[in-house]
Write a protein that binds this DNA or RNA. Structure first.
Length: 582
RNA sequence: CGGGGCGUGGCGCAGUCUGGCUAGCGCGUCUGGUUUGGGACCAGAAGGUCGCAGGUUCGAAUCCUGUCGCCCCGACCA
């Protein structure tokens, strides 16, 4: 492609409103343009990168035996009603009504496609002989994000690869899941992303295993917990905290005293008022677990983790109690609950056990207790790991320490079970003529996020650093003076020869000064830059420079196109080899 | 949904507090000329109902009211 014939609107300055590097660079390099909050046009350069990512995803899905199809983004609302997900999605589901003749038709734009694909399988699959099968598509998804942000990282319309596996047994599901997991590793390797596959919270909708593919980045929205020593990695919501000692309840001479804490109903307010540290306090949370109230204690500076509470208590449904329940149980308004004299079961996180003398709510409005001692003033029914992991916590798998890191989620694999196949009657007859719901898995990749995450983690002060696999163009030809016929003659010849050799070439044929071309070249980040200037041309040389290297090198003009095509090919193989080794 | 910030030619901004010449600067664009290895220089030109609506005033980019949009933090996020 010749620069003068396409549209690459590079920008010298950072547009107002763009803050994180990927957003700034995608706008400045002319990859995308914003239409409104959460909706971006992919300009020619950005589209090429997106298509390359898409193609890598497609190749690896095909390689893993998944079958591509394309479902409508427009869906009937009743499909979502049948699985109860109209409510589950709430405002995120974009739904509307249109009139057709004298009828009102209620539609929704698909935010994901479990319902549609399961309905499809229900219609066409009825025998175990047709299973297993994994179906996938690469399609635009629609979600009404409450707050779109971070450029293309969180948008209300995005390109997603979604795959769904249907199996006859749990063993089958495990095999399908593993295939997708391995395919995801190859995809992200080929894209040149430095990622982590982390254990993720599978949520209350069933299924017991889930992994997220995370790219570590300071601007990521997710938090992952990572142990550098053993490689343990998990989403913060899921991460276990390693073993902690609970000392035996100690005797204390310090008396328990009641203190006035008017209107101080939060840890922050109380610690400020009393001049104490949050880790000297105990946070008392009242939950309703399967209709019954239970108290959960965590140290004041810790955050309770609902998933862990649910699993520890062995309950199906656990949620924070509403104010009226809290008042009834504690006899005090919200914010003043404490374990002393509490008439309901008390669970506590291990770290609560290490506080010798604590400050707790007094179960009376506007009052707290100081000098509260476990064993004397209250008893803990059961200790467990009930809180979110924090920086420096012990690793659950080795004697290392956990670190909290921000990350961008680029993929998610999930064992679904039979939730959708039951709701939508996707059943098959087994060899014993028994009817069973298909056992499903679902697997998503945010294709736009691959691009954004790559840029977020691969750039320098001058611009993007594309890997060969995703680069919109592999090689940039930069004739420094388009008005010198001998320069353009070489440029045009190289352009033709390299294009014929199958290299993606961009020819900067603009009548611009060299400085402008160099700056733009660095900004858009094409891996291999070839400068054609009168200076080196006189010696029969071309100047070449890899975007990620400091220094330029020279190669003879004679036979240059063959040499350059070989260099591009070698670089392509390099990234591919990295993925097949993994 | 709570909190904060911002809307002025294509882009980045000043001017708004304290109302008053023809609304300014840099970049970009166009014309002519000189230049040509890291965002050139000279001369000239085009391009703005100051987000929108209403109000106050002799007079509004500037003050008041409403409204729309964008960005950030938090809550939410199959």
């Amino acid at each position: 492609m010749r620069w003068s014939q396409t549209l690459i609107p590079t920008m010298k300055e950072t547009p107002e409103g763009a803050e994180i590097p990927s957003h700034v660079l995608m706008l400045r390099a002319g990859l995308v343009g914003q239409l409104m909050a959460g909706a971006y046009t992919y300009l020619p350069l950005g589209l090429r990168a997106l298509r390359k990512a898409e193609q890598i995803v497609r190749e690896e899905m095909d390689q893993a035996g998944a079958i591509e199809l394309l479902m409508p983004a427009l869906t009937p609302i009743n499909l979502w009603q049948r699985t109860g997900r109209v409510d589950a999605f709430g405002n995120v589901l974009i739904q509307f009504q249109v009139r057709r003749q004298n009828r009102q038709v209620h539609l929704a734009l698909g935010p994901t496609h479990e319902e549609v694909v399961t309905d499809l399988v229900a219609r066409h699959v009825s025998s175990y002989r047709q299973l297993p099968i994994t179906l996938y598509q690469i399609q635009t998804k629609f979600r009404n994000e409450e707050r779109p942000r971070f450029g293309v990282l969180r948008t209300s319309e995005f390109l997603m690869k979604d795959a769904y596996s249907f199996d006859t047994s749990l063993e089958g599901l495990n095999a399908s899941y593993d295939k997708m997991y391995r395919a995801y590793c190859r995809i992200f390797d080929r894209c040149g992303l430095d990622y982590l596959a982390v254990e993720a919270e599978s949520g209350p909708i069933g299924g017991d295993v889930s992994h997220e593919f995370m790219v570590l980045a300071d601007n990521g929205e997710d938090t992952v917990v990572h142990c550098a020593a053993c490689g343990y990695a998990a989403n913060l919501e899921r991460a276990d905290v390693g073993p902690r000692e609970v000392p035996a309840a100690a005797a204390s001479a310090e008396p328990r005293t009641k203190i006035d804490t008017p209107r101080a109903g939060s840890i922050e307010a109380v610690s400020k008022m009393l001049g104490c540290r949050p880790d000297q306090m105990i946070k008392t949370l009242i939950y309703v677990a399967d209709e019954k109230p239970v108290a959960v204690l965590v140290r004041g500076d810790h955050d309770a983790n609902e998933g862990k509470i649910r699993r520890s208590l062995g309950k199906a449904k656990v949620e924070l109690a509403p104010p009226e329940v809290i008042e009834k149980v504690t006899g005090a308004p919200v914010g003043f609950a404490g374990p002393v004299g509490l008439p309901i079961p008390i669970w506590a996180d291990y770290d609560v056990g290490t506080i010798a003398s604590a400050i707790v709510g007094a179960n009376t409005a506007d009052a707290h207790f100081r000098g509260v001692v476990r064993g004397r003033d209250f008893d803990v029914g059961q200790f467990a790991d009930l809180r979110n992991a924090g920086d420096g916590d012990p690793c659950p798998r080795c004697d290392g320490r956990l670190a909290l890191r921000h990350a961008i989620e680029v993929g998610h694999v999930f064992k679904l079970g039979t939730k959708y196949s039951e709701a939508l009657s996707a059943r098959f007859l087994d060899e014993k003529e028994q009817l069973h719901p298909a056992i499903m898995g679902c697997y998503g990749i945010g294709v736009n996020r691959i691009i954004a995450a790559l840029i977020e983690t691969n750039h320098d002060e001058n611009g993007i650093l594309w890997p060969m696999s995703l680069a919109p163009y592999e090689l940039l030809l930069a004739p420094l003076n388009v008005n010198q016929p001998e320069v353009m003659e070489v440029a045009n010849r190289l352009y033709d020869e390299l294009t014929h050799a199958g290299v993606d070439v961009l020819l900067d044929d603009r009548d611009q000064r060299p400085g402008v071309k160099f700056k733009d070249a660095d900004l858009i980040g094409i891996p291999l830059r070839v400068v054609i200037g009168g200076r080196s041309l006189k010696d029969g040389q071309l100047e070449i420079k890899w975007r990620w290297k400091e220094a330029a090198e020279s190669i003879p003009l004679e036979g240059a196109s063959v040499a350059l095509a070989d260099m591009v090919q070698a670089e392509r193989n390099l990234s591919h080899a990295a993925s097949t080794q993994a």
